[in-house]
Design a protein around this nucleic acid. Structure first.
Lengths: 252, 252
DNA sequence: CGGAATGGGACCAAACTTAGATCATGCGCT
DNA sequence: AGCGCATGATCTAAGTTTGGTCCCATTCCG
């Protein structure tokens, strides 16, 4: 594997830099400083050389690769982290946090978070209705698992969004309607690319995550007990609630 | 393609890295670890290297194959299981749970007319609501034209279906929500390919076409007069009506 | 000179990996 | 049914990797 792209390119020798010998032409660019390394990495990320979520080489390895000290590498990575292009986790590594618009649908760019909520408001209530009516015991087990994961592991907006997508997609599966599932997957894809991602950090405070978790719990209980109207009401309110907060964030 | 690329590192073991004198060129495996193994397996599955339901090698064998510990392999498999790409059964093995990506046409074949109606029942009421709220005068003009065409030229089931799709898509446009419009186009595409086409001749009798036309007329009037609840009620009944007839046709 | 950036090293705590042992389950065979 | 075996699930203990932090010497540049 790794046949694709994963080769090539040296971080050094970007443009005609450091003409040794005579030392004229020294002008050059920021030669191999943290700023230069930062620019190289940023370009690589923005060009999609690294997939979203992919792990970068460890700092010590990058240092060796770029022929720089770890301090310098850390300065560059720190800058990129501030730009929200990277996420760093102790003991784990440094990860890319940028989705290349390569596979992003045009439609995602044109869709505002409000419009996305409107569409979900159209689809999800009836989807939940079908889910309550058609969910198998296995579906409900899966929902329970997802709910447990969500309530234990959703400390930040990033993780919560991911779990939230999983949860709602499981409901889509529980509807046992292939077209409905396909449709919701499309919506989820848009959701992953939309401008929502740029504002969710501001909207999803810790308290709101807790509130959403409560609503998810209530929705699950309604589905499990086959309470059609209750489930529909909960998901409808859930989305109205989210829309209200989006409108508030817009105003702010 | 002499672009800036990713820096490839090698793990501590394995092949010697090759650092060139002039610059640096780093080779070798991208950081093996559970995340990397997970990515490898995911790509293999998504590429169809494993058929749906096929059994993967046992964990102990995978561990040996990847030169990693069983714990690491299990971490990767666990991630893929969470992504619902795998299913694991004690005593049996690990199995692929992924079907070749369904495009619109595949989905259409898997979708029964009833399921299609269910999805439309989910989407269209709220879509109509948005349309009533957001339709421009131009939108309403276009709807009027389509309605006129439909009522004059819909003698057979074929022609009526075409006009009907146009009419509903115009409503989607009137919602002024690009995602909604895109979504409805997808639905319409499925509609064009589905098994519906094979039974519509039997369902769409001349009388029923006339009834549908009446309903369309009423829906248009409601939209034009900005009667939100009225329009929603009409389209909902319209679809329930169609569903009832489909169920009748199924029974027959 | 003096400040800023860089290099190089040490140490820490968190997360990950490894290597086992043991258990529980399901399958195939007699 | 009973048995043996392969497989996934779980646990423990230790080792390794990794980003976070601090310190100090060196280099670069005004």
């Amino acid at each position: 594997m790794a046949s694709i792209g994963k080769v090539e390119m040296k971080p050094a020798s970007g443009s005609a830099e450091t003409i040794r010998a005579d030392g004229l032409r020294i002008i050059s660019d920021p030669v191999r400083g943290s700023a230069w390394i930062c620019a190289q990495l940023r370009q690589a990320i923005l060009e999609g050389a690294y997939a979203h979520g992919e792990k970068l080489p460890a700092e010590r390895q990058l240092a060796q690769a770029y022929g720089a000290s770890r301090t310098t590498i850390r300065a560059a990575l720190g800058q990129l982290e501030q730009e929200r292009l990277l996420t760093r986790r102790v003991g784990s590594g440094t990860f890319v946090n940028f989705r290349a618009p390569s596979d992003a649908e045009d439609i995602a760019e044109q869709t505002s978070p409000i419009e996305l909520i409107e569409v979900r408001l159209a689809v999800e209530p009836h989807m939940v209705r079908l889910a309550v009516l058609n969910a198998t015991a296995r579906d409900i087990d899966r929902l329970a698992e997802a709910l447990a994961r969500m309530q234990t592991g959703s400390r930040d907006a990033e993780a919560f969004t991911e779990f939230d997508e999983q949860f709602h997609q499981l409901i889509a599966e529980a509807s046992r309607n292939p077209l409905m599932l396909w449709l919701y997957r499309q919506i989820n894809q848009v959701r992953g690319h939309s401008q929502w991602n740029q504002m969710k950090d501001k909207v999803l405070t810790g308290q709101r995550i807790a509130e959403y978790n409560e609503q998810h719990r209530a929705l699950f209980d309604a589905i499990r007990s086959r309470d059609v109207e209750g489930a529909v009401a909960i998901v409808t309110n859930h989305l109205y609630y989210a829309r209200r907060q989006l409108l508030g964030a817009d105003a702010a």
